Structure formats: C-alpha cells, structure tokens
Simulated scan of single mutants.
Amino acid sequence: MEAAAMRVIFLGVGEAFDEHLANTSLLAMPDSLDSDAVLLDCGFTAAAAFYLHAPAGLRADGLSAIAITHLHGDHFLGLPWLLHRLGEDGRTTRLTILGPDGAADAVPAAYELAYPGSYAKLPFPIVYTRSAPGVQLDMDQWRFRFAPSRHGLLNLAIRLEREGKVLCYSGDGAPSPESATLAKGADLLAQESYFLDIGSDPDGVTGHGSVERSIELARQAGAHRLALVHIARSVRHGRYDEIERMLNTAGDVHAFAPQPGCMCRI
C-alpha cells in the first residue's frame, strides 16, 4: 500500500448555525509529524473544536498556517479565540494567515473587538498572505492553489498539495468551472453540500451546493474520496436517511459524511 503523506482531521463539519456541529474546519498535517500543520477555515465555533480534536503536541507552535476561504463569520470569526489561546499557550513562532482581499484588515479588527488592545501584544508575529483566483503559493512542503466557487461573497476553494497528495476544500458555494478544475484528481475532496439535491436550487442562485451536485462533481473530477460537509442542519439532522441512501447509491464515488474528529490519511 502506498504510504500516506497527509493526515486530514475534520474539526467541524457543520454549517453556520448548527447547534450540534461546529462550523466546518479542516486540519491538514504531515502524516508522520504533529507539526507543520495547516488549518482551513476557523469559524465561530471551530476554534474550540481545534482544541478538542487536534493532537496535543500540535497546539502551540505546531500550526504553520491558517487559510481562510472567505470572510463570512462561520469561516473566520473563530480566529480571535484561537489566536488569543495560542498566545496564552506559549506560542512564539510566526503564523501565516492566507486569505482573500480584506482578510489582513478583517482579522485584526475582529480581534480588537473581541479583546481590545490585545492584538499588538500577541507574543508571536502574524504574516498575512493574499490568496486570489489562479494564484499558486508555496510554503515549505505545502502548495496552495485557489479558485472561486459560486457564492454570495468571494469564496476561494483551496487545493492543498504535499508530496504528490491532494486535498481540495470548497469552503462555501456551488461548484464553478474553476473550482471543478481545481478538484481534478483530488485524493480527498471536502465539498460544501448544503442542500440534498440539485432540485432544491437548480440554478445555484443561493450560492450553496448540494449532496447530489457534490457526488456529480467528484465523479467528473475523478476525486478518490468525497467528504460531504456544511450540510444544512435541517437536512443533516432531519433527513440523514436520505443522505445515506444517496451515499449508498453513489456507485463509483467513495463518498461519506464525516463526523467531528474524523481523520483521513491520504
């Protein structure tokens, strides 16, 4: 069996207002190390989930970067909590935050609202790096690529590569031609699947995807595994039997709906 290069932990898998599941957030790290990790999104409730599910040895200086897909609260407003806790836990090493236009202003502003006067006192430096459609960023052994999805606010899906392995994370939004291209050949595709079927929003005007559309995307992209995340709370908790039927009849697509704390090796 081919050796894994990356571990992916689903810290949270819920949508913005799901009281049972933390906001969707993924942690990627080298398979052999509890360090050099990348956090993908950190919403209102995801920061506490980081401390609940991340390896204990990672929690101070083991996080290398945080990548934000877009500036909706359920994808970045957990950062004041997380950054403050990292400081209290003794972090001293530089942290890189990657995000779209506005992130370098929004994160400090949110921090100052949460803890006035504290951002400048953080015991570790923060470096902001701008992500944009079509941009490729290399950081140590990580490679990031970005593409817009179909969402109400600019959302940049992320393709994260390490040692030939590929994690693709949608953030929010129905797939676009650009984000579909980004997903090609992914070892693991974590795709926002808010609705149950395409009929719930056939034209994608709401800026959200569906379970059915995600399965179709994974098949077309040749993704090895598909994780359904950010499912509407009414669907996840009220119609899960229908989700299971769709997963069981997905045919050649290896699809699943992860629980918080679920870990995949790729």
Rank of each mutant, 00 (worst) to 15 (best):
L27F: 12
S118A: 15
G78D: 09
A16R: 15
A110C: 08
S35D: 15
A56G: 11
G57T: 12
S25Y: 04
R245V: 13
G204S: 06
G251K: 13
G171R: 06
A46G: 09
S210F: 03
W142K: 03
A147W: 06
D36A: 15
L153K: 15
L160N: 00
L83P: 01
G90S: 07
H208I: 04
I66L: 11
V135G: 00
G78V: 11
A218F: 05
E112A: 13
Y240W: 12
D31V: 13
G134C: 03
I158D: 00
H151L: 03
Y51N: 04
M139P: 02
G222S: 09
L21I: 14
P116Y: 10
F10E: 00
G261F: 05
S214V: 06
R59M: 10
L196I: 09
A174Y: 03
P80S: 11
P55V: 09
I9R: 10
D172H: 13
V235W: 01
A223Q: 03
G62I: 06
A54D: 02
L98K: 02
M29S: 01
F146T: 01
D89E: 15
V229R: 02
T96Y: 13
D105F: 05
R213P: 00
D203P: 01
L189V: 07
H72R: 12
E15G: 13
L27G: 03
L137E: 03
A255S: 05
M139T: 07
R219Y: 08
V205C: 10
S193D: 03
G90P: 07
D36I: 07
S234Y: 12
N155R: 02
D201A: 02
S131W: 04
N23H: 09
G57K: 12
A65C: 13
A120K: 12
H230T: 10
H70T: 11
A227I: 04
M6Y: 06
G204W: 03
S118G: 09
N248S: 09
L156H: 01
N23K: 02
P148C: 11
T206D: 08
L247Q: 05
A218L: 03
T96S: 15
K121Y: 14
P123A: 06
V211L: 06
Y115G: 01
Y51S: 06
K184N: 08
G57N: 13
M1E: 11
R145K: 13
T45A: 13
L98F: 14
G152I: 07
E192P: 00
D140V: 09
C42R: 00
E2V: 11
A37I: 08
L86V: 07
V166Q: 04
A22G: 08
G62T: 06
E163Y: 14
G73C: 12
T92F: 07
D89I: 05
I158C: 08
I215G: 00
C168G: 01
L98T: 03
A221G: 09
E88W: 10
I66N: 01
V13D: 04
S35R: 14
F124Y: 15
L63I: 14
E244Q: 15
H224R: 15
V166W: 00
A180S: 15
L156Q: 02
P133L: 04
L182T: 05
A37M: 06
A147R: 03
L217H: 08
R91F: 14
D61K: 07
D101M: 07
V127I: 09
G102L: 04
P177I: 12
G99E: 03
S149Y: 03
L217I: 05
